[in-house]
Design a binder for these strands. Sequence first.
DNA 1: CTGAAAGCGCTTACAG
DNA 2: CTGAAAGCGCTTACAG
Lengths: 347, 347
Amino acid sequence: MPSSASIKDVAAAAGVSVATVSRVLNDHPSVSPDARARVMAAVDSLGYRPNAVARSLRTDQTRTLGLVISDVLNPYFTELARSVEEEARALGYSVIIGNADERPDLQDHHVRTLLDRRIDGLLVSPTDGGSPLMLDAARGGTPMVFVDRWIPGVDVPVVRSDGRAAIRDLVAHLHRLGHRRLAIIAGPAATTTGSERVTAFREALASYAIELPDFYIGQGDFQAGSGRRVTDGFLDLPEPPEVVFAADNLMALGALDAIRARGLRVPDDIALAAFDDIPWFVHTDPPVTAIAQPTTELGRAAVRALVDRIEGRPPASVTLPAHLVVRHSCGEPRSAQPPTSMERRAQ
Amino acid sequence: MPSSASIKDVAAAAGVSVATVSRVLNDHPSVSPDARARVMAAVDSLGYRPNAVARSLRTDQTRTLGLVISDVLNPYFTELARSVEEEARALGYSVIIGNADERPDLQDHHVRTLLDRRIDGLLVSPTDGGSPLMLDAARGGTPMVFVDRWIPGVDVPVVRSDGRAAIRDLVAHLHRLGHRRLAIIAGPAATTTGSERVTAFREALASYAIELPDFYIGQGDFQAGSGRRVTDGFLDLPEPPEVVFAADNLMALGALDAIRARGLRVPDDIALAAFDDIPWFVHTDPPVTAIAQPTTELGRAAVRALVDRIEGRPPASVTLPAHLVVRHSCGEPRSAQPPTSMERRAQ
DNA sequence: CTGAAAGCGCTTACAG
DNA sequence: CTGAAAGCGCTTACAG
């Protein structure tokens, strides 16, 4: 087991003190070339690797970021997580991901675990309105930034995208196609993205003098199962909506399931649009009209804000625009070939 | 900052020694009820949380598992990662995920980082045939198990699924539909899943006296871009294949992109099948015939094997069967409604 | 049942 | 340029 050698073994093998070993390992300038060479040789021959746990205890920093997301299985969050890890790595940090599965209790579990591990900073996309633990954490000493979703009234930078303009574009698109009975599958009201998307949708409809009655607002939880249940409910209405707008891609998948289970077709029988765009939407039957967030940029910006905070620079909140990607699920004519998923991702 | 209180502060507040505090925190039996109560009260009022870093250094265990996967953006691996975290949590472990993005250098980076952090055990799905570092790690002191992919000749338990029977079923299905020119988009030959799927495909074809010529074997890397390039190559052949079998779901996505970019239709112009099934395959145009792995069970079994090894019990390799899910992308008639993604996932 | 003390593997003033 | 020593926050024999 080469990895069990400690700094003491290296010092002994090199004939120097542990202080000197530590210095060469940390590129401290005041080490003689000779000592440096002997230490390096000892490190190599012993296969020595510094113990990060010991180092963290001593330096009081772990060079680790925590990321608590609502649902790893949601492609939007998977992509966000990937971007976060990439940027963090570039800045010399590791990231530990906690998957809350849209469950506040699980979210708290991960926040607690991460805090116990003394991560240097925490990135979170809160599943709810803020548990006592989360609030404590936000007020406590650990640098924190919210990404995608946030908790109002808490003094923490927020990195997110604003979908309101894109939702207005979507509603304009829908209205132009003649749709007047529009329904939404909402996310949990306790999440900002859950409530904001409904509000933005309602406001956009209002500018066309269209109401959003309660029976056209289905309460989902950002997971596929709820999209299915809500859509079933819409379809059972005496006057079902002409369009269903799912507030995330997973609920859109559930909606597709429900529509398909009844032998109905999109967009002929009912139109569908989704918040969050993913590569598969290009290839679904039909391709789904969606609102795309600049996910990679969001992840990058969130990490930069957090690292700024950790390293003593003033962090900035950032809001990036989302945009509408029109495809065929709302009834528009099949004319030009839309870009493929590869092209779209490259842009 | 409540989290900055240390065990010393708690001891002072409770009027006991740090040893006693440690004992109540660790549920050691020999503590008087009175001392216990005073300690608990102090813990509460200080908002004390034990420092996991210090504890790990002292106990030489981190209660953490490392998981190095080839690509988080691949839904198969995302689901695997989720299952791993879930089972690990049930057993009292955390997991740190390293995403190799199919790059051996990144894989090594994560293995190194994880080892430096002194994780208790390592789960890996190797991206290549085994870098020196990986080989060292496998021979070294850290408990390890391979999941999905493995490195031949290394004495490490393997938890994976065997797709050979399902590939035979697929070829039978394809043959019955009259297809005779079959091509495969392979994964990297340096990965076991990359080479095995080609071998199994070739053997299955052989039993129908069909050859698998080199020009019908496209070299991919399990990512969408390669699926697209390879498919383009197939389509440019003087005699293109009638069927393309993608060795994973991402390359199938790339294939769909390529086919679509030429204005061709699946299955009329060319049939498509994929290894790895995902919820979206139910809703693609057309629904994709795929080979499904018992992903959740794989993740669970891998964690159990690793924890067995960590805790001194003999770990067992496990091999689970994959199975064919026939949908419409190979040309079969559209008759009965296939199950929705929800139903399929529940079974 | 309890506490003083050693020690896990590092880093870093401090003194030389 | 170098080393002895202190100390990060815990746990755990050891002695009482």
